[in-house]
Design a protein around this nucleic acid. Sequence first.
DNA 1: CTCGTGCTCAAGCGAGATGTTGACTATGTG
DNA 2: CACATAGTCAACATCTCGCTTGAGCACGAG
Lengths: 233, 233
Amino acid sequence: MSTRRGKTVETSGRRFKTAIYEQFARVSKALASPHRIELVELLAQGPRTVDALARLTDMSLANTSQHLQVLRAAGLVEATKEGLFVTCRVSDPTVPALLLALRGVAEARLAEVERIRREFLAERDQLEALDEEALRRRVRAGEVTLLDVRPPEEFESGHIAGAVSVPLPDLAKRLSELPRDKEVVAYCRGPYCVLAVEAVTLLRRKGLKAVRLSDGVLDWAARGRRVERSGRS
Amino acid sequence: MSTRRGKTVETSGRRFKTAIYEQFARVSKALASPHRIELVELLAQGPRTVDALARLTDMSLANTSQHLQVLRAAGLVEATKEGLFVTCRVSDPTVPALLLALRGVAEARLAEVERIRREFLAERDQLEALDEEALRRRVRAGEVTLLDVRPPEEFESGHIAGAVSVPLPDLAKRLSELPRDKEVVAYCRGPYCVLAVEAVTLLRRKGLKAVRLSDGVLDWAARGRRVERSGRS
DNA sequence: CTCGTGCTCAAGCGAGATGTTGACTATGTG
DNA sequence: CACATAGTCAACATCTCGCTTGAGCACGAG
């Protein structure tokens, strides 16, 4: 079995390798576009219809549809047609894990990531050095309001245990629901989502004590913490 | 801050998102080629010179060099010039982790991967259902010879604790070194590397009891098991 | 049946990726 | 010094991507 070593001879071992590496590349090719990463990252928060994704990502419908087909062909995304709508979802728990690994490398190796983050999230407190254990205890003891500011459908399909859902657009009208004597900890999709940043800015302007939790549900779950669901599906 | 929602307006939030997703995509683009995945997978086993990589992957030197530059630009690989040689290495422990995540998705979602594996590794026992704990105990008790059949430089830069190095090409001549009364467990770079398969085939033909451990060093380490190094660098 | 909505398909163009070839640089050897 | 080796660079043909546009299809409402 593949004992010859000549350069011209395509040994069976080489054919095997090229065959699997091609398969692995199918997956990474699927994520080799900013738009598709954004789509998958959104889908990792919960199922969405094609045109909801198009609106959230500011892409044309046709373009969104095509990108989703690439993702489906690579097995990262599944779609089901329900009446007039096609609902897409991430196909496997390994997919969010891959996203986290990707982010991990980018953070560790690309100085640009940190630079961009600073540029946009500048000055505002990040609560990066948050003690997870302490937060959990304080949430449970009711000393802190844990606020999920993502759209309600994402909250339903999975949120940090103990969190309260107040989507960012509703926050201004629903300020009265928040106990003014408690500190608010707001989170959204993850460290690179701006929702919680804006929420914290708003809350502080209104005189509340608010900080941002940079974790999203995925990060939280990846740390082995508890996650709840409240919707169907 | 990004309150307008019109499609034509590039809000600051959108610019931020496109900026980071572009960075994430830099990383996945770097892995969006079978050849580059193969290169990184080899480098994950230990440092290599450019032309060693070219020979191992059956690529032209120029092509290899160019792919490596893509990997360097994406921050996945680092290179240092030592005399006449340029030695490349994986830049960060997050990189092998990304490889594992990639493989995880491919295995979970692409039926082709399993099909290709079957086609090439057919029939031969895989020892997939190996009890890790039991293996560790048996290795430590000396009941089993754990054989690393990769090239020596890879063994030196990291191997499973307790393993013995016998590179595949030397195996036939060095059979006498292996105690004939003990079972041999052979491993190589991982589940899709053919070295251990060939080693097991050879050993059985010679009358030894041999099985393959499908894990490579990376998988082993990812499970939290002990890994040893013996070289410099 | 007709119409609007959600989505897909096909064609096409510009931009970018791949791999080869041959020239070029840098380092070390006799 | 000439010469070999390891690696990079530049130029090129080829191919694949990404996105737009406009047509087409499936489903549901009136």
